[in-house]
Design a protein around this nucleic acid. Structure first.
Lengths: 186, 186
DNA sequence: AGGCACATGTAAAAGGTTACATGATTGG
DNA sequence: CCAATCATGTAACCTTTTACATGTGCCT
């Protein structure tokens, strides 16, 4: 019962607020998440396993005008599991970036394609940056960062959002400078 | 025959210089690569498939005092495949960062563990940054960046190294500031 | 004598992606 | 009426990770 990486990402998300599979699918969407992504199918499957293992509990919420949903919350066993996970050495970061593979492998005839892909990435990163910044504003809720950090409880998510902002800013800067350099060659 | 993402990363690496599986294993090492990592086992398997599909060619290099090795080079078919890949829209970046999962999910009793993991990451990123910077110096080989960009052929690898440098610098800055913030809480 | 670098593999288990499937309600 | 959002799933396939396996030569 080692490995099982997605389960910890799910527990980390559920520890702050209960959620349905559908809710989690929005959080783990590749276009939104700054540190882990997963498809809805993966989430539904893993939520079943987690509740089979007693780490989360489901309750059915009846809804009118919408399909009913199962809302999950972390159990005591789940809290213990998460605590044990946080105490371990994390496995090294995994990145797979096809755009960087393309830049590495590009030949003289590929400059135009790569420029188009860089431009698309630039736009996507700008959108993601806005999402993160809106999430930060919502978390701060008028307070200064100092006030928030000294009193807030959701400090972990906030710190991760800061990382995401820095990452997207860097991506944007790199795309711009790379586009400029490639413009000279075509 | 879609998907197959690792093959393009291998072709991108082999297009610049022929290499054995063992050579590639060093390039794709998680502690070294800035955009894609793979284990030796993955590489040996995929090299077999690539040569089965005629995208790379192997020649055996006899060595004294060392085991013989198979050195691979890209064929014309491989060059075509790589060209087609570069022209497609890349699939979105995938990141999985357990450290950020830990930061997201940490509770009041987890601050000490997370600090230890952040400190380890900080050291690892400093080492990686040095590796990238040495690789950049080797690529420039005394020339200024402008000179290099206007004349060099391996421009793609250079641009990706720049991205890696920026990424590790950001990681280092974030680890430092997060360590400071958590220090106030323990 | 012991450990690291060189050099390559097999097999099983775990994790992730893609295609298919269903069905209600809301907004334009 | 059509598209999007809400809400959940099954099955097949592909990719990645981990454990195990082997053997030489160099350096201390």
């Amino acid at each position: 019962m080692a490995g099982m990486a997605l389960r910890h990402a799910i527990l980390s998300a559920l520890i702050h607020r209960d959620a349905s599979g559908y809710d989690l699918a929005k959080v783990f969407d590749a276009a939104v998440s700054s540190y882990w992504s997963a498809t809805p199918q993966q989430l539904y499957r893993e939520l079943d396993r987690l509740s089979g293992d007693g780490l989360v509990e489901a309750r059915v919420v009846q809804q009118e005008r919408r399909p009913n949903k199962r809302v999950y919350s972390v159990t005591d066993a789940g809290r213990n599991e998460l605590h044990a996970f946080v105490a371990r050495a994390p496995r090294p970061l995994a990145i797979r970036d096809e755009l960087l593979v393309q830049v590495t492998g590009m030949g003289p005839g590929d400059v135009e394609s790569v420029r188009a892909n860089l431009a698309a990435k630039l736009e996507a990163s700008e959108a993601k940056l806005e999402i993160y910044q809106r999430a930060i504003d919502r978390a701060l809720d008028g307070r200064s960062e100092e006030e928030f950090l000294d009193s807030g409880e959701l400090i972990g998510s906030y710190l991760v959002l800061q990382r995401g902002v820095a990452y997207e800013r860097e991506t944007i800067a790199w795309c711009r400078s790379t586009l400029k350099i490639l413009a000279r060659r075509s």
